[in-house]
Design a protein around this nucleic acid. Structure first.
Lengths: 204, 204
DNA sequence: ATGCAATTGACCACTGTGGTCAGTTTTGTT
DNA sequence: AACAAAACTGACCACAGTGGTCAATTGCAT
């Protein structure tokens, strides 16, 4: 991270980052408003351009920051000895919850960014940061012999992936609309039920 | 539909509708640009405001038009005698493909519109148009006894729904990036495989 | 040829833009 | 307390893009 940024208080830095991640993820680069970013972050216009030379500088910083943050969390927190696919999945989800608690729009920002990239660009960019990491997440040490032999493993893991995304999205949408605080116990219990069904559906 | 609109040529009308659906679905009401809509539609600024008094008038028309179009297609084309859940699913997907062929952004527009509504508003609006229709789509005549008894039917159908959405989204993303024409035979064959796996996973 | 509807696009007042910079406040050092 | 350096502010600017208008033109049926 930029040295000058490191000297900023962490709380203020995250306020700016989160405000910018939200604005860019909702509107893309061109339509995002630096005015709205500074208001939401509670800083002055001048300060933003003092830290990040211009709009593009801010965006570039966020692009690097977001993928680095996610990858660092995965590298540090994942238990690479775990061999059960669904336990691995649960860990990834837990990491996502933790990262999202600090940076609510970081995944949305990354998805929005990838809209304008080819699959090769995305792959290459991630590979440069930490070779093989994302490939390893769902392969390293995982015991795929637990799955029903008759099914195409690739399609099955895709279905599971889609289910997790759908579950997350629905939960998030409901959260946005009700605006009630999260009941984590209830959430985890409900999520376990989903995993249970998926296990029964796809494991031998 | 508005009388004055009915007199317009169907081809030009669809060009305007599709252009507007795209712009609104990508940017929401406020950030959508009427300038871009008319350029994409290949008409003059004045003509747009001749047919739809102002931006809001255009948006309101699209809101009514999109839900009416989708509901009419479902009402007309669905085989209500079919009792197999996955056959029903296939029909819904087929209808969606047909509607999307004519109005590529109609579903995106509806999703974007629903972002600013509560669940109750959405339900009420749909109910007023055709009472009970959307509830009936996945219930009327469907034989749910084919599903494994041990699993919560509601969660299972959600998983299937999420899988279909994920499949559609991935397909559409790939299409946008490669820009190759659709090979419908291949697509249907591939889609059948997905249905096959889901059947094996959730049917007795 | 006439009348009428369909269609155009230059034009307008206005909003919001990214970025600047002279000035103020805060901080740390002596 | 005195000073300098760093952090920070917000009024200000030129300009791009906005929704909407309307006098003028075109196309078509009679």
């Amino acid at each position: 991270m930029n040295e000058i940024l490191m000297n900023m208080g962490a709380e203020k830095r995250d306020r700016i980052i989160n405000s910018a991640l939200m604005e860019f993820s909702k509107n893309g680069f061109k339509k995002a408003s630096t005015n709205k970013i500074v208001v939401e972050a509670g800083i002055s216009k001048g300060l933003l351009f003092h830290y990040f030379i211009n709009k593009k500088g801010l965006y570039d910083h966020l692009e690097k920051f977001s993928i680095e943050t996610v990858m660092k969390n995965i590298t540090d927190k994942l238990n690479w000895d775990e061999s059960d696919f669904f336990e691995r999945v649960k860990q990834i989800v837990l990491i996502k919850i933790q990262v999202t608690a600090q940076y609510p729009y970081i995944y949305d920002f990354m998805i929005k960014t990838y809209e304008n990239m080819t699959a090769d660009d995305i792959f290459e960019y991630r590979e440069n940061l930490s070779p093989g990491l994302l490939q390893k997440v769902y392969t390293h040490n995982i015991d795929y012999s637990k799955f029903k032999d008759s099914m195409d493993i690739k399609k099955v893991t895709q279905i599971i992936q889609w289910s997790l995304e759908g579950y997350g999205k629905d939960f998030y949408d409901k959260l946005q609309k009700t605006k009630e605080p999260i009941n984590y116990e209830e959430l985890i219990e409900d999520f376990e039920k989903l995993i249970c069904i998926l296990k029964e559906a796809f494991y031998k």
